[in-house]
């Protein structure tokens, strides 16, 4: 379903990703953990080409891009349409209401009829518990509510995979739960998800697989029960100890 092969990313002299290969099956939830600067966010952003890898290939569904060759400009939006991304800072469009935010992708990118898109957006917002906030602007919503709009907005494009970039890191502690709850429900419905997070509780409970990254490489990947209980690598052990 998702296959990335030998992905490198270099920012000038900084080698952020040093040959990452990874495959994720449909319906699986993969959580990526690691210290800051380990490249986990860059890896996630390479999956939808928000960062263009220096080399390597990314395949999602039946769209495959090989960044070692010259990539056609039109193929990048194709890859992005396979993915839905949820950002740390929500990045909602402040000049649109909640329902307009969620409709925007289907209407502008997929040319879906406005009324249909609005009905679907309303249903998605209801699903994330915001059925009564359709016409609120982002500034009128709490952080947790904004992030749930962000999730609904990503879902509106019917993505093959949902990418979460530290979705709860900017939230007040008491608002983290409402966002994690929505993410858990998504996982239970069988959505394929790749989540960069510091929420180890979420990783333990929801992930099918946890990946520990450090200094641009995947150090260890395993089921959460194995990785958290008895990590094989020393560096993983050190990192987990720091969390406690």
């Amino acid at each position: 379903m998702i296959t990335i092969t030998d992905v490198h990313k270099q920012f000038n002299t900084l080698h952020v990703l040093k040959g990452i290969s990874l495959s994720v099956e449909k319906g699986k939830v993969v959580v990526i953990i690691g210290p800051s600067g380990s490249g986990k966010t860059t890896l996630l952003r390479c999956l939808n080409a928000l960062e263009v890898p220096t080399s390597g290939s990314v395949q999602i569904g039946d769209v495959k891009l090989d960044f070692s060759k010259k990539v056609e400009r039109t193929s990048i939006p194709k890859l992005r349409k396979q993915t839905g991304m949820v950002f740390q800072n929500y990045n909602l469009f402040p000049h649109m209401t909640a329902v307009e935010n969620v409709m925007e992708g289907p209407v502008t990118v997929k040319k879906v009829d406005k009324e249909k898109a609005r009905a679907k957006a309303a249903a998605l917002l209801t699903k994330v518990g915001l059925g009564d906030k359709l016409d609120h602007y982002p500034a009128q919503l709490s952080g947790g509510q904004q992030q749930r709009v962000g999730i609904a907005r990503a879902l509106a494009m019917d993505p093959q995979v949902m990418l979460f970039d530290e979705p709860t890191s900017a939230l007040d502690p008491e608002l983290v739960g409402e966002v994690l709850k929505v993410m858990k429900e998504l996982a239970q419905e069988g959505m394929t998800m790749i989540v960069v997070t510091h929420e180890m509780g979420f990783a333990r409970e929801v992930a099918d697989e946890v990946i520990f990254m450090d200094q641009g490489v995947i150090v260890e990947r395993d089921t959460p029960s194995h990785l958290f209980a008895k990590p094989r690598e020393e560096r993983t052990r050190q990192f987990l100890q720091h969390l406690k």
């Binding site: 939808n48 928000l50 939006p77 194709k78 992005r80 349409k81 993915t83 839905g84 991304m85 950002f87 800072n89 990045n91 909602l92 469009f93 925007e104 992708g105 502008t108 990118v109 907005r153 990503a154 494009m157």
Partner: peptide, 20 residues
């Protein structure tokens, strides 16, 4: 982040510019 949000849903440069 506004550009990125627009791009991540598959918008082109001109769509992101005009709509967002």
């Amino acid at each position: 982040g506004q550009w990125e949000a627009a791009y991540s849903m598959g918008m082109t440069y001109w769509q992101a510019l005009r709509r967002v």
